[in-house]
């Protein structure tokens, strides 16, 4: 199937604001489905709530539209019940690492083979631009009018500390790179996290002096450093910037494999006991 055949074209345009980066990420997701030759009947997109969570409205694979912050819990159940499915979990930064932060760290640790596409737009888009767990310090949001005073999460570092095996980051405008990251994540048996920096032009952009959508794209691009380049820079040079590319890809047994081995051992022990 060609990438655009994964979209419900007759339902476009989406409800996303003019200039929102999510349409680019939707293209990347569709391209990743083409790259991995994902069959519609074998693919399910699981979402929580938020502007990004609505991506399932314009995509053809099966969808499970859950509740805010809990997408990973539903997805874990789906994958364990039907391990052959491609389970793609779409979450915003609010959904994924703020209200849903506890599910996120435990999903990283548990290593069920899901592909989590976390779109980080630095705030709660859908509800009007309140700060989230990833809002950078000093940012203006609708709940930090004089500048945000909290530290922010780095989603990829959080995932690494929590034990994830595959971690990648991209920016929404690099649609091909994002598609590659998602496709690589889908090919792994391990839990995969792909963070995509995507502009919320309506709230974060306008609140922070980026009046035209293109200005927020330029800002994000100026902060993105490919992983190869970042390795040559000092921590001072990397101050305020973020690394893009595949950041971690380590081998490991996923939950399902371990579970099956566990059952096998149990069966063998039981057989032995019967024999004696």
């Amino acid at each position: 199937m060609r990438w655009d055949e994964y979209l419900k074209k007759e339902r476009l345009p989406s409800f996303w604001c003019a200039g929102c980066g999510y349409g680019q990420v939707m293209r990347s997701l569709a391209m990743a489905l083409e790259k991995t030759r994902a069959a519609l009947e074998n693919t399910v997109i699981v979402s929580g709530i938020g502007c990004w969570g609505h991506v399932d409205s314009w995509m053809k694979p099966n969808a499970f539209h859950g509740i805010h912050g809990r997408a990973l819990a539903f997805a874990t159940g789906i994958k364990l019940a039907s391990p052959a499915l491609n389970v793609i979990v779409v979450m915003g930064d609010g959904d994924g690492v703020t209200i849903g932060g506890n599910h996120f760290i435990h999903a990283c640790r548990r290593n069920v083979g899901l592909t989590a596409v976390v779109c980080n737009n630095l705030n709660y888009g859908m509800t009007g631009g309140q700060y989230s767990g990833t809002t950078p310090e000093d940012s203006i949001t609708s709940t930090s009018r004089y500048g945000h005073i909290e530290q922010s999460f780095d989603i990829c570092r959080l995932a690494e500390a929590a034990g994830a095996h595959f971690i990648a980051r991209s920016i929404s405008e690099n649609v091909v790179a994002t598609a590659d990251c998602i496709a690589e994540g889908m090919k792994r048996e391990n839990f995969a996290v792909i963070e995509v920096m995507s502009p919320c032009t309506t709230h974060y952009g306008r609140n922070n002096n980026m009046r035209k959508p293109i200005e927020m794209y330029r800002r994000i691009k100026s902060l993105a450093v490919p992983v190869g380049t970042a390795a040559k820079l000092s921590s001072e040079q990397m101050e305020g910037k973020f690394v893009t590319g595949i950041l971690l890809d380590r081998p490991g047994e996923d939950y399902f494999t371990r579970y099956q081995n566990n059952i096998k051992v149990k069966a063998q022990t039981a057989a032995k006991e019967e024999g004696t």
Binding site: L12, P13, C17, A18, G19, K212, P213, I214, Y217, R218
Partner: peptide, 13 residues
């Protein structure tokens, strides 16, 4: 034009 929302990104890119 039925899909375009007038965001101006194409002009910018």
């Amino acid at each position: 034009e039925n899909r375009c929302k007038g965001c101006g990104l194409c002009v910018g890119f």
